[in-house]
């Protein structure tokens, strides 16, 4: 789960934020850990649904191109995110929107915090 979320977060940061904010690998790793932690903190029925949809997202790439999302190149990953973002199924759009929101909020929160806070090993 963390691996898929890390790949998603990396792609979202590189597409939406990298040009202006750069890509700090440590902050990115921490962002992924916090997103997974947040998913686990959700009410159980929401948490299970998010884990299930994230796994569907990961494996849907395998069905279409023989590669799971986390095994794809950055541009292939970007294509898959775009497909889900423009999907006719609202649940697919919602999954991408959820990860975009969580990633930009947490990444910017960490980038905006003092460097010492950013470098703490665990989540906040």
């Amino acid at each position: 789960m963390t691996k898929v979320v890390l790949h998603l977060a990396r792609n979202i940061v590189s597409t939406l934020l990298e040009q202006e904010f750069g890509q700090d690998q440590h902050v990115l790793n921490k962002t992924a850990v916090i997103i997974v932690q947040r998913i686990r903190q959700m009410p159980k029925f929401l948490s299970w649904a998010m884990v299930f949809l994230t796994m569907v997202f990961e494996w849907s790439g395998f069905i279409l191109s023989g590669k799971r999302f986390s095994s794809k190149t950055l541009s292939e990953q970007n294509e898959q995110i775009e497909r889900w973002r423009d999907s006719r199924l609202s649940v697919c759009r919602d999954v991408v929107q959820f990860y975009e929101k969580m990633t930009v909020f947490i990444y910017c929160s960490l980038m905006d915090s003092p460097v010492t806070d950013r470098q703490r090993s665990g989540p906040t």
Partner: peptide, 21 residues
Amino acid sequence: SALPHLALWLSGQRDVGKKLS
């Protein structure tokens, strides 16, 4: 309206990073 909150509410925009500058 701190930076992370602006990022959150702008995240639907395609060029969010550029806007956030």
